Computed example of a mutant assay.
Amino acid sequence: MAKFNKILLTGINGQVGHALYPKLQTLGEVFALDRGQLDLANPDAIREVVQRIKPDLITNPAAYTAVDKAESEPELAHAINGIAPGVFAEEAAKLGALLVHYSTDYVFDGKKTTAYIESDETNPLSVYGASKLAGEKAIQAVGAAHLIFRTSWVYGAYGKNFLRTILRLAAERDTLSIVADQFGAPTSSESIADATISALQQWETGKDGIYHLINSGKTSWLGFAKEILSQYESLQEVRKWPPLKIKSADVRSITTAEYPTQAHRPANSMMSAHKLEKTFNHTSNAWNQALSQVITTL
């Protein structure tokens, strides 16, 4: 099993960073930093931290993730998502370290009718997607040892995400309308962390590249919301959780056109994880099974 003497982890207060932290500790000494300790919009700060810690593994789940806000803050989104990953790659190359970075389904335009594979043409529809694609390319241009994991619809028991938002809205509102014509694979932060550790345990030269890391299966945002509420309802009495005002059967279906947002999102966010499964022999749970594991921890 691969071992790393020093591991630098960014975004400890984010969903994926929070899930990764305890698992990375099984591989080596972890130096975990939050936004206050490391400003990813400042390349000099990144270089100083890496040169001081001298890690042999850099894990970078930190990102600018406000998809709609990025439309009005393109420079900041690009600094954090586009430029910073390249700086990490440059510093990793100097140290001979491995860089693990996370990207997104939003690098695609969603026009493909089947699941995207890693070599498919990218065409982001939003500033956020474009900034994440720039980060991928910056890492690849440096040529340092790297793993780039594209994931989708990330949620977990911790942090701000769709799961927690749906439960909050269902407790507060009398009606709830969710988009039903965008499709993808909800992917739990715990699943992302587990797959990352599995890949790191099997890491060896030649396995560099981009991998799609998602829970298996397919649903819409509407289907995701209904499953969240359904699973909550099934546990509500047993766990003595407060009842919700809105039941899963009450959620109303709407189209993307009926719910306009600042940033355009792909209608099809499906990605094939076959490459990850083949290279690292890791198969993620079905999305609804992963959801069940998360909800039981609430």
Results as ranks from 00 to 15, higher is better:
residue 5 N to Y: 10
residue 13 N to D: 14
residue 17 G to V: 03
residue 22 P to F: 10
residue 23 K to E: 13
residue 24 L to A: 05
residue 25 Q to N: 11
residue 26 T to H: 14
residue 33 L to F: 15
residue 36 G to D: 02
residue 36 G to Q: 02
residue 38 L to G: 04
residue 38 L to I: 13
residue 40 L to R: 10
residue 40 L to G: 10
residue 43 P to M: 14
residue 44 D to R: 15
residue 44 D to E: 15
residue 45 A to K: 09
residue 63 A to N: 06
residue 67 V to P: 00
residue 67 V to N: 00
residue 70 A to T: 06
residue 79 A to I: 08
residue 83 I to L: 14
residue 89 A to N: 03
residue 91 E to T: 08
residue 92 A to V: 07
residue 95 L to A: 08
residue 100 V to K: 08
residue 102 Y to T: 00
residue 106 Y to I: 02
residue 109 D to Q: 06
residue 109 D to T: 09
residue 110 G to S: 04
residue 114 T to H: 14
residue 115 A to K: 03
residue 115 A to C: 04
residue 117 I to H: 11
residue 119 S to K: 13
residue 120 D to R: 02
residue 122 T to Y: 02
residue 123 N to K: 11
residue 126 S to V: 03
residue 129 G to C: 08
residue 131 S to V: 07
residue 132 K to S: 07
residue 138 A to R: 07
residue 142 V to R: 06
residue 146 H to G: 08
residue 151 T to Y: 05
residue 152 S to T: 03
residue 154 V to K: 05
residue 154 V to P: 12
residue 154 V to Q: 09
residue 156 G to V: 09
residue 156 G to E: 06
residue 156 G to I: 04
residue 158 Y to G: 03
residue 162 F to V: 03
residue 167 L to N: 07
residue 167 L to H: 06
residue 171 A to T: 12
residue 172 E to A: 15
residue 172 E to G: 11
residue 173 R to N: 15
residue 173 R to M: 13
residue 177 S to D: 04
residue 179 V to G: 06
residue 179 V to W: 05
residue 180 A to C: 11
residue 185 A to L: 01
residue 187 T to K: 00
residue 189 S to G: 12
residue 189 S to T: 11
residue 190 E to T: 14
residue 191 S to Y: 00
residue 191 S to I: 04
residue 196 T to G: 07
residue 199 A to T: 10
residue 200 L to T: 11
residue 202 Q to H: 08
residue 205 T to A: 15
residue 210 I to C: 12
residue 213 L to N: 02
residue 214 I to K: 01
residue 217 G to D: 08
residue 228 I to V: 14
residue 229 L to R: 01
residue 233 E to N: 04
residue 233 E to L: 06
residue 234 S to W: 00
residue 240 K to L: 13
residue 242 P to F: 13
residue 243 P to Y: 08
residue 243 P to W: 11
residue 246 I to F: 06
residue 248 S to N: 15
residue 252 R to F: 04
residue 255 T to S: 15
residue 256 T to D: 10
residue 257 A to Y: 04
residue 257 A to S: 12
residue 259 Y to Q: 15
residue 261 T to Q: 12
residue 263 A to G: 01
residue 268 N to K: 09
residue 276 L to V: 07
residue 279 T to L: 03
residue 283 T to R: 15
residue 286 A to N: 13
residue 291 L to S: 07
residue 292 S to E: 14
residue 296 T to W: 00
residue 296 T to M: 11
